[in-house]
């Protein structure tokens, strides 16, 4: 793909998206995804003119996207395109990396999380995250899930026990661990450990769940359990999932965002992205014509 042709294609696509939304916008800025679904849902996350830098490296370039409540959004794109960086910007996990800089706005329920008065601990409680490699704490299965509750000041043992059970049930792992709550999580299989981490994230009742390649190290059965779990969880949560597995993005997400070289190339309903993407670059990527 030649640079100039790619830019022209992208420019045409971007202008047509903005034009089609012009009549429905109340804000002066156009954000992709705001009017993409016929089903009326609240905008949970709205990203406007967002840029992110690692030192002098411009990792995210003018990202505009609106994510609706209780939707699953799949983020796809080649390695190094900014998928995980974008995900980590949503709960400001990148703040802990030295020499990084964020510009622009990410609104969650209408509040810009990059405002100076934003409490990052509260933000990370509201926006849970699960990583590619399951990382249970060296505590019992029960304590792994109870940990977040305890550090958030919950002291009532009965409440903790109820919430641990609910989280493990919500993460579809209760039946497998209910008799092993005192065991070490490292005795669980990889898929079980990953669902335990999801249960741990759910225990503190976040509003949004960020999943960074949650099934990439799992076998097909564990992967299918995690995917089924995502499908169940979207009734209560807004979920953003980064995945290299395009079939997985197609199976689990309502909307898909295709990133390349730090830019959001296309954001649309998943069925549209995988049957008739608007942008030639997206089509070349999803059909494996470049990579």
């Amino acid at each position: 793909m030649q640079g100039t042709a790619m830019k022209n294609e992208k420019f045409l696509n971007a202008t047509s998206i903005f034009r089609s939304q012009a009549t429905t916008q109340t804000s002066s800025k156009s954000v992709r995804g705001e009017s993409a679904s016929p089903v009326k849902k609240n905008i949970k996350i709205k990203v406007e003119s967002f840029n992110f830098y690692y030192g002098n490296t411009w990792a995210l370039k003018n990202i505009q996207i609106a994510i609706k409540e209780n939707n699953v959004v799949g983020i796809i794109g080649p390695s190094g395109c900014g998928k995980s960086t974008f995900l980590r910007c949503i709960n400001r996990m990148n703040d802990i990396i030295k020499n990084t800089r964020a510009e622009g706005f990410i609104y969650i329920d209408g509040k810009n999380i990059y405002e100076k008065d934003q409490d990052v601990v509260t933000l990370r409680r509201d926006v849970g995250m699960v990583f590619q490699k399951s990382n249970p704490f060296p505590k019992s299965v029960f304590e792994n899930v109870a940990y977040g509750l305890r550090i958030n000041g919950v002291k009532d043992q009965r409440v903790i026990a109820q919430k641990v059970e609910k989280s493990l049930k919500d993460a579809a792992i209760w039946d497998e661990v209910k008799d092993r709550l005192s065991d070490s999580p490292f005795s669980l299989s990889g898929g079980q450990q990953q669902r335990l981490c999801i249960a741990r994230a759910l225990a503190i009742e976040p509003r949004i769940l960020l999943l960074d390649e949650p099934a990439s190290a799992l076998d097909p059965i564990a992967t299918s359990k995690v995917e089924e779990l995502i499908h169940q969880l979207k009734k209560e949560y807004t979920i953003i999932i980064v995945t290299h597995n395009m079939q997985q993005a197609a199976r689990v997400s309502d909307f898909s965002a295709f990133f390349m070289m730090g830019e959001l190339i296309e954001y649309d309903a998943t069925s549209k992205i995988f049957t008739n993407p608007s942008n030639k670059i997206t089509e070349d990527y999803v059909t494996g014509r470049f990579g």
Partner: peptide, 9 residues
Amino acid sequence: FQPVAIDLR
């Protein structure tokens, strides 16, 4: 091949 986009069509 689990084709998508133009390949699928």
